[in-house]
Computed example of a mutant assay.
Amino acid sequence: MTKTGEKPVAIVTGAGGSLGRATALRLGRDGFAVAVLGRGGATLAETAEELRTAGVPTYVLEVDLRDAAAIKAAVREAEAEFGPVHALINNAAIYPPTPFFDITVEEFDDVVAVNQRGYFVAAQAAAELMRERGTGAIVNIGSITWSGGWDKLASYVTTKGAAVAMTRALARELGEFGIRVNLLSPGAFPTKAEEIHENPEQYTQFVLDHQSLKRRGDPDEVASVISFLVGKDSSFVTGQTINVDGGWVMM
C-alpha cells in the first residue's frame, strides 16, 4: 500500500457494521482515504471491497478492540503506510442484551474493554499523531440510550455515557493542539443491532411512537453528520454531543 498523496486519512473502527460501513463510504465520497478497522471477517472485507470499487484508497486493519497494544500499533501503521491521519471515528461497540442481575463482572469488563477503553486508546493513539500537525478531528459514537437508560443493556448504556464524558474532557484538553472532539448519538436505526429485540414489528412501532419524525432513519443520515464533524464546515465545533435520532431525545 502506498501513501495517498494529498487525501486526508480517516480511520473508522467497526467499519464492518451498518453505521460504520455507511460512514466509511461517505468519507470516501467526500475525499478521504479510509482505513477500516475491525476484527476482520466477511463484513469488514465487504466494506473494503465497496470502498475499492468506488475508487477510494483503502487500508484494512484487523484488530480486536480489546487489545490496547494492537490498537495503538494499528493507528501508527495506518499513518506510516497510508498517510497522515486526519480523522478518527470511534464506532465499534458490543451490546449483549443481558438483564442487570445476570450481568457478570466478566461480561461487564468485556463491554467496557471494547466500548470504553478501546475508544480511549484509539483516541490517544490518533491524537498523538494529530498534535504534531496541529489539526485533527475525533468523533466518538454514542447512543441516545445514555440519555434515558435502557433495560437489559446496563453495560452498554454505561459505556455510552462514559463516551460523552470522555468527549468533553478530550475536547477541553486537545483544543490547544487544534484537535476537535465531538460525539454523535444515533437513535434507533434499522441495523443488525435490532436483532436483540424479539418482536421487530413491535419494536419499530415503539421507535416511531417516540420519534418526532415518523419514519425510520437511514445509516447514511448518520454518516453525513459524521462527515460534517470531521470536515472544514465544523472547524469551530468541539466538545459537542449531537443526536441523530429523528427528534427522540432533545437536549
Rank of each mutant, 00 (worst) to 15 (best):
M1E: 13
M1K: 14
K7I: 11
V9A: 12
V9F: 08
G14Y: 03
A15F: 00
G16E: 07
S18P: 09
S18I: 09
R21M: 07
A22K: 06
R26Q: 06
L44N: 00
A45H: 06
A48V: 04
E50W: 12
R52S: 10
T53F: 09
A54K: 07
G55F: 04
G55T: 04
V56P: 05
T58A: 01
L61A: 13
L61N: 08
E62W: 10
A70Y: 07
A78V: 09
F82W: 05
G83S: 10
V85P: 02
H86K: 09
N91Y: 00
A92S: 08
I94T: 06
Y95M: 14
P96T: 04
E107W: 00
D109N: 08
V111Y: 12
V112M: 03
V114L: 00
F120H: 13
F120W: 15
A123F: 04
A125C: 12
A127S: 07
R133Y: 08
T135H: 14
A137E: 02
A137G: 02
N140Q: 10
I141R: 10
I141G: 10
I141H: 05
S143N: 08
S143R: 07
T145R: 11
T145C: 12
D151V: 12
A154C: 06
A154G: 06
S155D: 10
Y156A: 01
V157L: 06
A163E: 12
A163H: 08
V164M: 03
E176W: 13
I179Y: 12
R180I: 01
N182I: 01
G187I: 00
G187M: 04
A188S: 15
F189W: 06
T191M: 07
K192Y: 11
E198P: 11
E201S: 13
E201R: 14
Y203K: 10
Q205H: 02
F206N: 14
V207K: 07
L208P: 13
H210K: 15
H210M: 13
Q211S: 14
L213A: 03
R216Y: 11
E221R: 08
V222Y: 00
A223F: 02
L229H: 04
L229C: 10
L229E: 12
V230P: 03
G231S: 11
D233S: 08
F236Y: 15
V237Y: 09
N243R: 12
N243A: 10
V249D: 01
M251A: 14
